[in-house]
Amino acid sequence: MFELLKLRKKHGYQAVPNLRRAQLPEIFRGFPLLDEHQCANGCRACIDICPTSAIETDPLRLDMGRCTFCGDCARVCPSGAIHFSACNRLGATTREKLVIPSGMTSEEFQKSAITVRREILRLFGRSLKLRQVSAAGCNGCEMELNACGNVNFDMGRFGIDFVASPRHADGVVITGPVSRNMAPALRDTFLSIGEPRLVIAVGACAISGGVFAGSEQLNRTFFDTVPVDLYIPGCPTHPLTFINAVMDFIGRK
């Protein structure tokens, strides 16, 4: 009993007090800042090194939906035209908004990235239950989504939870590039959720196929017919990125 109390005391208070304002250390690779004016003529160093073809030039832009945030582009850039800031707010409600042009600041991105729809606010503003489907996810995003509910992040305090049954869920959270072998199970799970139902794509793999894009073992036809309501980039997506994107999406302060 004494040991238990001692342990409880040592454990202390672990919750991140304000998730909305929490900052990650400088070394974290979050929102990318691009400055085309720094680019040397004809330089393709970032394009050549990018593992997921997330960068294009003329004009310079970076697709956060493909980006694995490995940081290799910033490392090879001879002139410092690419820098990953520690800002963890990366979610957006359309695919196009994930493509970051040169000169965009993270504040500008956040202003327009997530559109709050009135019916979402009304239906899910106070409680959002989600069914997660790992469709060939590598367990990176899955572990981070689990971490969203741990003692540090505890997103349950905002009424946002992962639930076991799709019948109890308001939407599906997809991780992984969607393998051929998981395509039917993903569709079945989605169809088992009562309408209206949300689709949230988490991580580079779910959004674009990530490093697995182009594999013949994927089947991403799910996304041809089902629109995604919220895209949350990352590799894996940090719990703060996920929670903040969802909170913004359901119009929470």
């Binding site: 090194i49 593992p51 060939a136 393998s179 490093v211 697995f212 594999s215 013949e216 073992q217």
Partner: peptide, 24 residues
């Protein structure tokens, strides 16, 4: 088998891109 993403094939198909292979 549900998670099969064809990793070994991706290694061969992208054998000339060592940096990609590292992230794979």
């Amino acid at each position: 088998g549900f998670q099969h993403r064809g990793v070994e094939n991706l290694f061969i198909r992208n054998a000339e891109k060592p940096n990609y292979l590292l992230h794979l």
